[in-house]
Amino acid sequence: MANSANLALPYLAASQAQKHVTHNEALRLLDGIVQLSAADRAVNTPPGSPSPGTRYIVGGAPTGEWAGWDDSIALWADGSWFRMIPKPGWTCWVEDEGMFYVFDGSGWVTLASTLGL
Rank of each mutant, 00 (worst) to 15 (best):
V58A: 01
W90Y: 14
A67F: 02
T54Y: 06
T91L: 07
G60W: 06
L111I: 03
P88M: 03
G107E: 13
L27A: 10
P86F: 04
L12P: 10
A67Q: 05
H20N: 09
M1L: 11
N44C: 02
L36C: 05
A39I: 12
V58M: 01
S51N: 14
F82M: 08
G48W: 02
P10Y: 04
L75P: 07
S49E: 08
A14W: 13
P50W: 05
K87Q: 15
S51A: 15
A2T: 12
D96P: 08
F103K: 01
Y56R: 00
G53K: 10
L36V: 02
R55I: 01
V21P: 03
N44E: 04
F103Q: 03
T54P: 07
G68S: 05
P46G: 03
L27W: 09
W81L: 01
T114N: 09
L115Q: 13
L7Q: 08
C92P: 04
V21Q: 11
A38F: 02
Y56Q: 02
G105A: 04
T114A: 03
Y11F: 15
A42W: 09
K87T: 14
L12V: 15
E25P: 03
N6W: 10
L29R: 12
T22C: 03
S51Q: 15
R28F: 06
K87H: 12
T91Q: 13
P50I: 05
N6Q: 11
I73L: 05
L75A: 00
T63L: 07
A67I: 04
T54E: 14
W93M: 09
I85A: 13
P88V: 04
L117V: 11
A5K: 10
K19N: 10
Q16E: 15
S72A: 13
G53H: 10
G98P: 10
V109C: 13
A2V: 09
A38P: 04
F100G: 02
D70P: 03
P10T: 01
A39R: 08
N44G: 00
G32I: 00
F100N: 11
P88F: 05
W81Q: 02
G79V: 07
P52T: 05
H23Y: 15
D104M: 02
P62S: 00
A77H: 08
L12W: 11
I85N: 11
H23Q: 14
T63Q: 10
W69M: 00
R28H: 06
T114P: 02
W81G: 01
A13G: 15
V43I: 12
M84E: 06
A17G: 10
A74P: 09
F82G: 07
F82C: 04
P50A: 02
H23A: 14
L111Y: 13
A67W: 01
P46W: 01
S49K: 10
C92L: 02
W90Q: 04
E95Q: 15
P52W: 03
N6V: 12
A13Y: 09
